[in-house]
Amino acid sequence: MNLSHSSSTAKTLDPTPARALGEFIRAHRERLSPNAVGLPPGPRRRTPGLRREEVAQLCGVSPTWYTWIEQGRPVSASADALARIAVALQLSRAERAYLFELAAQRDPAEPDPAASDAPAALIETVKLVDSPAYVLDRQWNALAWNRQAADLFVGWLDEGTSDAQTRNLLRFTFTQPLARELIVDWETRARRLVAEFRADSIRHLNDAPTRALIDALASASDDFARFWASQDVGEREGGLREFNHPREGRLAYDQITFKPAQREDLKLVVLVARGPRGPR
């Protein structure tokens, strides 16, 4: 694995909040074609995607104001204006939530938060699951896991793992050679993992532990730095997860992620075997 890291990539990883908002909006504008929003292709375009003026028209805002938003100027953006931008750019639910967090605004479409849950019950629950299961905190450190998960995740959750930092799912994926051997289609899964973490971490992106994790991974892994700079955002999805286990061979699971009510910074991940059995 290439552990070198270019300074040009590092500069894009820590923008100001206003500039981060502008970069995110611009990246998604450039991905959207005129046909996707019902506009004629028109004459030859010098830049990819929609023009700024076209997005401004779709949003019902002035082209100057929209341009200033993309340029990262410290202009005021109301929740209503942001909602119109999200609709115009056809953002997914995760991308919309990320947009509002970048702007430090509450999405009017989101319900009010309620009381918090007790995390101790979640951590205890993992012992009751008869499949590989683990609990992640907001930096995706493993707080608890069962024997089946330790058997499956060699180099991350097994007893032979001595470095506490490797209990972090992202550190394991991007800095441990064993991860590339264990995870089938590592490139696709790793890219998806970064998109999920970007969406998951936006609420605490400036917290010292999260910032330190991102900076350390960007310095240690060109792949992480490249995926992070892409501005991709995605929800944590379930579905097929495949592994090349050193003892059990090829294993396939369906992944399910549970979040306790009002504690979305914690998550219980369960893997249900598709084949005859997983590691026991």
Results as ranks from 00 to 15, higher is better:
110 E>Q: 15
59 C>H: 04
89 L>Q: 05
68 W>Q: 15
100 F>D: 06
60 G>V: 10
87 V>K: 14
74 P>K: 11
106 R>E: 14
50 L>V: 03
63 P>F: 01
105 Q>I: 05
98 Y>V: 06
61 V>A: 12
99 L>A: 01
74 P>F: 00
108 P>C: 10
60 G>W: 08
94 A>I: 09
102 L>A: 03
108 P>G: 03
82 L>E: 06
95 E>G: 06
103 A>F: 09
100 F>Q: 05
101 E>H: 13
96 R>D: 00
63 P>M: 04
56 A>C: 04
59 C>Q: 10
63 P>V: 09
77 A>K: 03
96 R>N: 00
89 L>S: 01
53 E>C: 07
73 R>T: 05
98 Y>C: 02
94 A>N: 06
102 L>V: 09
85 I>Y: 02
62 S>M: 09
72 G>P: 13
53 E>S: 02
50 L>S: 03
84 R>H: 11
87 V>F: 04
75 V>L: 12
83 A>N: 08
78 S>F: 08
67 T>W: 08
84 R>M: 03
73 R>L: 03
60 G>D: 12
50 L>T: 01
89 L>I: 07
98 Y>A: 02
73 R>C: 00
110 E>F: 02
60 G>P: 09
103 A>E: 14
58 L>A: 08
82 L>H: 03
58 L>H: 06
101 E>F: 00
61 V>M: 15
66 Y>W: 11
83 A>T: 11
58 L>V: 03
55 V>D: 05
59 C>W: 03
66 Y>T: 08
90 Q>M: 10
99 L>N: 04
95 E>A: 12
63 P>W: 04
51 R>D: 08
108 P>M: 06
78 S>D: 10
110 E>L: 14
53 E>A: 01
102 L>G: 03
72 G>W: 11
91 L>C: 08
97 A>W: 09
74 P>H: 08
74 P>D: 13
61 V>L: 07
105 Q>G: 00
84 R>K: 13
90 Q>T: 10
52 R>D: 10
107 D>Q: 09
75 V>S: 01
86 A>R: 08
66 Y>Q: 12
67 T>C: 05
59 C>K: 12
107 D>M: 06
54 E>G: 02
98 Y>R: 06
87 V>Y: 04
90 Q>L: 09
106 R>M: 05
72 G>A: 12
90 Q>G: 00
80 D>C: 00
83 A>D: 15
94 A>L: 11
110 E>K: 13
56 A>G: 04
103 A>D: 13
88 A>Y: 05
56 A>Y: 03
91 L>I: 05
81 A>V: 15
83 A>P: 04
68 W>F: 14
70 E>I: 09
97 A>G: 14
97 A>H: 15
64 T>Q: 14
59 C>D: 02
71 Q>F: 07
106 R>H: 14
60 G>R: 11
105 Q>N: 00
88 A>T: 11
93 R>P: 00
102 L>T: 07
56 A>K: 07
